[in-house]
Amino acid sequence: MTLLPYPLLWFALTIMWLLLNSVTPGHVLLGATVSLVACWSMAALRPAKPRLKRWYLLPRFFVTVLYDIVRSNIAVVRIILSGRQKGHRSAFMHVKLDLKDPTALSLLAVVLTATPGSAWVEYEARESTLLLHVLDLIDEDEWRDLIKNRYEKLLVEIFE
């Protein structure tokens, strides 16, 4: 067993401890110790270790997502307040994904669900298809294009 299995997790937990308490030498020591124990128990679970190939692309990904969330917030508010336009409907749709890395998939799931207007429903690992529910569907290909070109491409670059 290595002394510090997850340096990034340890750092984040220590920072969280200091935020919740106060920055004093005692709390730095206590927080570091508690985080270390938490990291060890995490290592005991043996999760698949995520590998970031190009971490510097992550900020770009988050900015894209933040922008899209603002845009879809406005779109969903409009639907709720004034109803759907003619020809628009809510429906399920299937998307075939090329992404295989579990961490990247879960990141994509969080992004799609956190965005109002689209919800991740089910992922079939054997056929790598994703079942998605969309609130305002006009053209399925438009959504496919959004997921594949806007998110998936970037995630493949970051993780694979």
């Binding site: 969330i69 917030n73 969903v76 508010v77 709720i80 669900t113 956190a114 965005t115 109002p116 207007g117 689209s118 919800a119 529910h133 609130l135």
Partner: peptide, 8 residues
């Protein structure tokens, strides 16, 4: 989809 407005 509706509650995600409040959570985002």
């Amino acid at each position: 989809h509706a509650p995600t407005l409040g959570t985002s």
